[in-house]
Write a protein that binds this DNA or RNA. Sequence first.
DNA 1: AAAAAAT
Length: 713
Amino acid sequence: MPNKKSMDGKKARWTRAQKLEVKRSDVRKQRGEFAGSDRGPRKEHSESAGRPERGARREGDRGPRRFEDRPQRRSDERRDGDNGGYGRRDDRGGYQGRDDRRGGYQGRDDRSASGQRDDRRGGYQGRDDRSASGQRDDRRGGYQGRDDRSGPSQRDDRRGGYQGRDDRRGGYQGRDDRSGPGQRDDRKSYGDRDNRRPSYRDNRRDDRQGSVRDSRHEDRPQRREFDRPRRDDRAVESRPVEARPAVKCEEHPVEPISLEGNGFAALGIPDSLVERLARDSITAPFPIQVATIPDALAGRDVLGRGRTGSGKTLAFGLPTLTRLAAGGKARSGQPRAVVLVPTRELAMQVSDALQPLVHVIGLRHKLVAGGMPYEPQLSALERGVDLLIATPGRLIDLMERGAADLSRVEIAILDEADHMAEMGFLEAIEQILDQVPAGGQRLLFSATLDRGIDTVVERYLTDPVEHATDDGTSSIAGMDHHALLIEPRHKKLVTAEVANRAGRTVVFVRTKLGADRVAGELREQGVLAASLHGGLNQSQRNRVLSAFKEGKVPVLVATDVAARGIHVDDVGVVLQVDPPADHKDYQHRAGRTARAGEKGTVVTLALPHQRRTMQRLLDAAGVDVEVQNARPGDDVIRAAGGSTPEGAPISEAELQRLISPPRSSRGGRSYGDRAGRGGHSRYGGGDRGGYRGGRDGNRGGGRDRFQRGGSGR
DNA sequence: AAAAAAT
């Protein structure tokens, strides 16, 4: 297992290529039926393919629709009564193979013991088997009815879509934190999305929802607030194409809003968007928006620098939507613009921030990211999406399975580009951007413009205009910084003291395990804290994040997953229990506080052996402070609002109760447990126990504790 | 070195 890592890397690469190859040869076989035209079948071809199921296939008619290469197959799906016409389902038996797959992965270890070359094959063997057996059959029928695949080479194996199975409960799990703001404190403002609900609700594809949907309904009243965003999103997803005019005046305020003196109007943003923004009291563009919007509107490539929260989302969102709305129509499977973001959280935030705007201007958007069910993403793509907001992994996945074709992308946007340009990420980005036709517009936004993104700029941007506002250090300047040199034995207590304060605190640690550990230690000391890291499954991540945003949990212990993506207002203190890796990370982490002009404090702990590194780091980050000695109870800690915690230990159970959706899961087991695999490493066992216990024994200890912690200023 | 991103 020594060089497992490097092997993995190699493996992944190989596998991708290999997979493509498999797929391609697959397609070739299918294509044989199309007289082997290499340019592939055009409209006529598909038309003439005339499979029986073809004619029957209609929007909303799930029977003959099909999908291919569906990754997560759950047994209940196969039971789905609706598949009547779906005889070929059986073929999938070969694919059901959760077990196969697992076997495949296990094999990996053996392999690593044996040798590298053969490995690869074994590594994904599960997958390969699958594609060899089941998948092909699926796909065969799948060629029906994709009409205008006039685009370049890719169109070949577009799956025929998949049937709209909507029983994916976990489906929108992801969106709990929706209420989260985009740029400003728009939480309230976009919250009034409720307005839209009634009108869209009727448009939902009730016809497609089986009985499962009904059962969902039963859960609903019980977890209303968690449902809302989900429902909202669902409503939007499922808006039938023909009902598109439904984007009507409900979006417009009753009282006319004056556009006079509105900064966005002055920048050339269309009235409908300006009005929508004004409804949320967004009338004055941020500097980065003023700087970049005109150029972006003019169609130029833009290189924008500004830290997260400086308004980047609107800076690229407004011109993109404007230009998209100006002409053209999304074709099935071919988005017209793509926003690439490094984390799922960020993807959701971008999506949420743009959602009302997308609607008002009559376009469609979709969030495409891992950890969320494929189905809504596939069907949205099939229906046609103007703006795709994506994390790289899932997008590539969708591209490889033919669900997303970037050959008609007019605008490509890279958010947090410095992060995306890091090792390992870059490859994915290039793979994606290579599919985007040259000559389109490219917008690249980043907090810093020097971390190796030159390659990307060079390769994908044409004569870009560079706009740098808010150069990172300026925001740093608005915070109080403290670097505390402490003894190892004091670390735990000092951490708790700093975190034990009124208001929200984000604690950064280096590793996932560390996040769980520190959060646990804080709770042991009576400080209510939850951990957030990439090892949690998506629903856990979302639950933790929304609990933090809602103030149910005041302390978030996170890895760097939260260093960039998280937009939460009112984070008064950022505590770095482990020093950041470099000054960039310092800036990113620090940027979680002092948002939107608030004040903020950054406390960084360093152990004696880290002193010199720490000082250098501070200097590099542009922070003008000295590392100072500190011990528990020191004034510095009190100055930051901390105090010695006195609360009783908080059990995992109590925490779980707090971060769980209210009485969620009687019928909703799938909500959190489904993804199974990635629980807390250390507290995983307690997780479930606590969860259930919480439901039964409803002793409301957690809240008291929060209050105690909160008032213990 | 860690984390993130697909399963």
